[in-house]
Simulated scan of single mutants.
Amino acid sequence: MDEKLNIAFIQADLEWENAEANRNLFSKEIENVTDEVDLIILPEMFTTGFSMNAEELAEETEAETLTWMRAHAREKSAAITGSVIITENGNYYNRLFFVFPDGSYKLYDKRHTFTLAKEDLTYTAGKERLIVEYKGWKICPLVCYDLRFPVWARNTVDYDLLIYVANWPEKRVNAWDALLKARAIENMSYCVGLNRTGVDGDGYVYNGHSAAYDMLGKELTPLDRAEPFIAEFSIDKKELLETRKKLKFLQDRDKFSLDE
């Protein structure tokens, strides 16, 4: 088990519906990530922005973007995660990939599709939560609107790190700030939220506010940043386990299961 996990997230202004331009953008940014980093986080729909134009933009799972992620994961000897528009068996998915340094991967389909933007009319909702085991850490990666649903994120399996990749608009960024911190505290887990910046093709403004918190809600990264930037930080497994053992909050959690 690695006691510390070194993480980088890349907050960026995405090119609307331009996968090649966005892959090129992130290729340059990934080059700037230090070799000590174990995990690189990219935004929700990082190749396109939050588009409902799935028919034109969707890729097969084993297509260009996953190939690109695998290449960079191998090159940096780091895992890479982020979500992409995927087509499979006649359906479209807002699909997160967690790609390991050896090129293998796990996937998670966004559970809560954003009805306000009619995402539910385009994309099929996922049914299963993903827990990734990586370098001795248990990681739960989720996508954007999932943040508003604490039951789905409830730490019933003693995961160590909760990740949200997002396109979360400026007009509701106060909720983003509050809920990220709450998810960390209530689940006694590190919590990282990565948002985008800029203006998308539908006119929605994004002001970042990407952040990381420890299990008690302490900020680990600069807050309120609206410009593109890369944050690198470490999380500590020993500190997490000692805090849980001392406070015992997870031992008092309610017992429940999720129904479909």
Rank of each mutant, 00 (worst) to 15 (best):
A153K: 04
S77L: 03
L147S: 00
I139S: 01
I139L: 05
E75L: 15
D177G: 05
Y134I: 08
K181A: 14
Y145D: 01
P150R: 02
E133S: 13
Y134D: 07
A182M: 10
I85Y: 00
L161V: 04
T115R: 08
A125T: 11
T115W: 07
F114C: 00
F114K: 05
N155Q: 12
E75Y: 15
H72M: 12
P101F: 04
T156S: 12
P101N: 05
I86A: 06
D102Q: 11
A166D: 10
L162V: 03
L121S: 12
A175S: 12
K76A: 08
V165I: 15
G126V: 06
L179N: 13
H72Y: 14
V99H: 05
L180T: 07
V132C: 05
T115A: 03
A182F: 02
D102Y: 10
F98M: 07
W137K: 04
T122W: 05
K118E: 12
L180Y: 05
S104V: 07
K76G: 07
A125W: 06
V132F: 00
W152L: 08
Y164Q: 06
I139N: 01
H112T: 09
L142N: 01
V157P: 06
D109A: 11
D109W: 04
C140A: 14
Y93Q: 12
F149L: 09
Y145G: 01
F114R: 02
Y145S: 03
A175C: 09
A117Q: 08
K181I: 02
D160V: 06
D120E: 09
G103N: 02
P169I: 01
D109Y: 09
Y92E: 11
K110M: 03
